[in-house]
């Protein structure tokens, strides 16, 4: 029930933004559509809806967004320099890293963050064993623990506070 309510609110906000600027007719239709969608698919949206009520999670999320955008920018400059370099300095390979995150949302965000940060692309996740396979454009170490330290740690600390 709580999950349905959260989905209703999120859906209604997205609808309002899509039909910006706000006006009465759009809002009424939005209420009906959001309620309908929440009624049908609400239970799939979140398994632990009480997490949406924790204020600290939002604060950590606000810290996570600029950090993520900054590493995303660094990633772009890194790839651009590699691509423009006449020697094409790449040393690719698929390495294995470990994660302690358990929740689906947390793992999804971790994989997305890894994909958009310098030189790494998530290939597969094994949620039960907590293992991610990462394609690395410039392999610095083949050791699982060292690679974990380099790729996963910076994000894992924050994502743990947001999603676990």
């Amino acid at each position: 029930m709580k999950s349905k309510l959260v989905l209703f609110i999120v859906g209604f906000i997205v609808w309002s933004l899509l039909t910006w600027p706000l006006d009465f007719q759009h809002l009424v239709v939005g209420l009906i559509v959001a309620a309908f969608v929440a009624f049908i698919t609400g239970d799939l949206f979140s398994r632990r809806p009480h997490h949406f009520g924790h204020i600290t999670r939002y604060i950590w999320f606000c810290y996570y967004v600029p950090m993520f955008l900054w590493s995303c920018l660094k990633a772009n400059i890194d790839v651009a320099l590699r691509v423009l370099n006449p020697k094409l300095p790449i040393n690719p390979g698929i390495v294995k890293v470990k994660t302690t995150l358990k929740s689906d949302t947390g793992l999804t965000f971790l994989a997305n963050s890894i994909t958009l940060t310098p030189g790494t692309l998530c290939v597969d996740i094994d949620g039960e064993k907590g293992v991610l396979y990462i394609h690395w454009i410039d392999v610095k170490t083949q050791d699982t623990d060292k690679a974990t330290e380099l790729i996963v740690r910076p994000f894992e600390k924050i994502l743990k506070k947001i999603f676990e």
Binding site: C72, A75, N76, V79, A80, V83, I90, P92, I94, T115, L116, G119, L121, V123, H135, I137
Partner: peptide
């Protein structure tokens, strides 16, 4: 895989 690296990051 390398091509995906370039296209995902830069194009996003």
């Amino acid at each position: 895989y390398n091509r995906l690296q370039a296209t995902t990051k830069c194009v996003t």
